[in-house]
Simulated assay, not measured.
Amino acid sequence: MKFEHITLGQRVMFGSGQSAANLAAEVARLDASRVMVIASEFERSMAKTATAQISPALWWDEVIMHVPVEAAERARSAANENDVDLLVCVGGGSTTGLAKAIALTTGIPIVAVPTTYAGSEATNVWGVTEDRTKTTGVDDRVLPVTVVYDADFTRTLPVELSVSSGLNALAHCIDSLWAPGADPINRALALEGARALAIGLAGVVANPKDLAAREQTLHGAYLAAVSFASAGSGLHHKICHVLGGTFNLPHAQTHATVLPCVLAFNAPAVPETAARLAAALGRPAIEGQEAAPAAVEALNALRDTLDAPTALADYGFTAADIPEATQRVLKAVPASNPVTVTDGDITALLTAALNGTTPAPSTPSLT
């Protein structure tokens, strides 16, 4: 066994109903006096709750999915003009993404208060979109110095969005199993994150107000993000970045829809990992069953329980979009992917995701 693992330095404060006190303590610890609060209009009430014990200098609500460069520039200018010394983002992945875009060029630290299971708050990955192309990168300046988790905020998240956001987190886990920086440590984090997400999301669907289920899901989303921050973007995320940036598909729903197709494609090449994933999802392989089908069946059983999104066609993607998407994805495929990727593979995978079908695992062409 030989590997190099990096754990990102970040403070995590987890406590339901404790966001205002925890955020105030962090603002004081960081000696910040000019706080910019980033929250969409929809997220404003939660942001007011979280910031009840501080006095923000600036509120910013222009939050746009996939962080267009022009919107990022306006927010950066506002931060500079108001001498902001701390960014507090309260919301989902788009809100955190905007804070990261500001921090990338200004160096202003971030305290993140997540209200979904997006996981962006625990990574040093940034992304902006320009000319129908989403560009991502890694920079420690965008890693929030502190994450304030309060599961109370997720109790008002509609079940449908909870499911897609939670499956987005599960995609972080699964991609971390074979991404460029995959190692035994982040695989362990990813598999435990998958276990927690499967249990938590089932509980959320059964009772959306169940705080324990919400906490379990939020805990799993954090583990997913930490593993992803170390492992990096695998094939799944490269595909979804193309679909989001080029075709403006909704982030969480796209991840939730594409995930079983990528798992079916890659799992046959890593049977031991696939077996561990099936067990983590609560449906270990039965005697005589191969690991890859077991993992795919476990994921699809969870998706059935959750009534998960099934088809990219439901979000505006069309068959006419597949050729362009395929060529863009092929340029971004990580060399670490356990299966050799061809034009035909991506075309078939996107066709399955478009129509809402999961291809059966097949004999892989190993890299």
Rank of each mutant, 00 (worst) to 15 (best):
I286F: 12
H251R: 14
L259C: 04
Q253K: 09
L281C: 06
P250H: 09
E272M: 01
P260I: 03
A280K: 02
L249M: 13
V262W: 03
T273I: 15
N266L: 09
V258K: 04
V262F: 02
T246F: 07
T254A: 03
T257I: 10
P250Q: 14
H251N: 02
P271D: 08
E272I: 13
G244C: 05
A252H: 14
L263V: 02
P268T: 09
Q253W: 13
L277E: 07
L263G: 05
A279S: 13
A285I: 03
T257M: 05
T254K: 10
G244K: 14
V270H: 10
A280C: 10
A275Q: 11
V270C: 10
L277F: 11
Q253F: 07
A252W: 14
P284V: 05
T246L: 05
A252D: 05
A267W: 07
H255T: 03
T273Y: 07
E287I: 14
A280F: 08
N248S: 15
A275K: 14
R283Y: 13
P284L: 03
A274W: 11
E287P: 08
A269W: 12
A267F: 11
P260L: 00
A264N: 04
H255P: 01
P271Q: 11
L263H: 09
V258G: 02
A274K: 11
I286E: 15
N248G: 08
A278G: 07
A264H: 04
F265S: 01
A275C: 05
V262R: 03
A275E: 14
L249Q: 05
A252S: 06
R276M: 12
L243T: 02
P250M: 15
L259T: 05
A278F: 13
G282F: 10
P268D: 04
G282P: 12
L249D: 06
L259V: 04
A274I: 14
A274M: 06
F265H: 11
A280E: 01
L263T: 07
A279D: 12
G282Y: 06
F265Q: 08
P268K: 15
T273W: 11
E272D: 15
T257F: 09
V270D: 03
V258L: 01
E272C: 10
A256L: 10
R283N: 13
F247K: 06
F247Q: 00
T273P: 06
I286T: 15
P271A: 14
F265V: 09
T273N: 03
L249S: 04
T246Y: 00
A256R: 00
L281V: 02
I286L: 15
L263A: 00
L281N: 05
N266F: 13
L249N: 06
A267R: 12
N266W: 08
A275V: 03
T254W: 09
A280R: 02
L249P: 01
C261E: 10
A267S: 01
P271R: 15
R283V: 06
A252Q: 06
F265T: 07
L249C: 07
A275T: 04
T257A: 07
N248W: 13
L277Y: 12
G245H: 12
G282N: 12
F265A: 04
A267M: 03
L263D: 05
